[in-house]
Design a protein around this nucleic acid. Structure first.
Lengths: 126, 126
DNA sequence: GTAGAACCTCGAGTTAACTCGAGGTCAAGA
DNA sequence: TCTTGACCTCGAGTTAACTCGAGGTTCTAC
């Protein structure tokens, strides 16, 4: 049989509550159930979880991820939509990296400034 | 006289409400008031706003930014604290960029896969 | 066959970061 | 003087993404 929600949560680094929440929000339509209603994760589900993790951490909302998951379940008719989504997300991430690079520069200057200030303050404790 | 909150909001790309909220949370202790109580921004305040923007967009909470702002107002005694904070934030951003790079790779693979799938689907519309 | 752990649903509560609106003040122009 | 628009405070409302707990069921190990 499959992997329990407890094991799955541990492996995915999420809480059991979060996993159930994701399912409620339509992010995990691929997770099976036993006849009695217990969730039953399979190996391949972790692939899907990893993609959800990736999209979420790069700024996508649960709602948008839900839309993507729905497309995935709909089959080949939505291939182009999904491709477009990934292309958009790629741009998003690239822009984000550039932005972060600028912030890194800004903070680098601050660090130079403060290192100097700390050095001077130590030499000359007012 | 100085710059009104309306002009300041426009220039900073924030809403008037947000600016007042930031002040309430202690992020803008450097903003002056007229005798009648109207906020009165000066040129140098935009420097502070830019730093708040930077810290916020690199993942710092309002609460933590507040702490940093308080240190800034306290003078030289907190130089080391502020330096440490910037060093930590630098690490944070670097880690974030690396993470994003990995996500970019992952999404790159997906794009290759989907471009192929879309091409095949067009050649052979089932 | 029973105790206890892990599972289930459902609805309410939490947190961060805004966002809004009511009700009031103030200052500049007609 | 009077109107109008931007400003003020304060408290309540919103949204996203969890997070929790009550009350109940099921499975596993003794």
């Amino acid at each position: 049989m499959g992997i329990s929600i407890g094991k799955a949560a541990e492996r995915a680094g999420l809480s059991v509550h979060t996993l159930r929440y994701y399912e409620k929000e339509g992010l995990l339509p691929f997770v099976d159930r036993t006849p009695s209603g217990t969730r039953c994760f399979k190996e391949s589900d972790f692939e899907g979880l990893a993609m959800i993790h990736c999209l979420k951490n790069t700024g996508m909302t649960i709602r948008d991820i839900h839309e993507f998951v729905r497309w995935s379940m709909e089959g080949d008719a939505t291939l182009q939509k999904r491709l477009d989504m990934f292309l958009a997300q790629k741009k998003e991430i690239e822009a984000r990296i550039e932005e972060f690079q600028r912030y890194l520069d800004k903070i680098g200057y601050k660090i130079d400034y403060y290192e100097n200030a700390v050095r001077i303050a130590k030499q000359d404790p007012a």
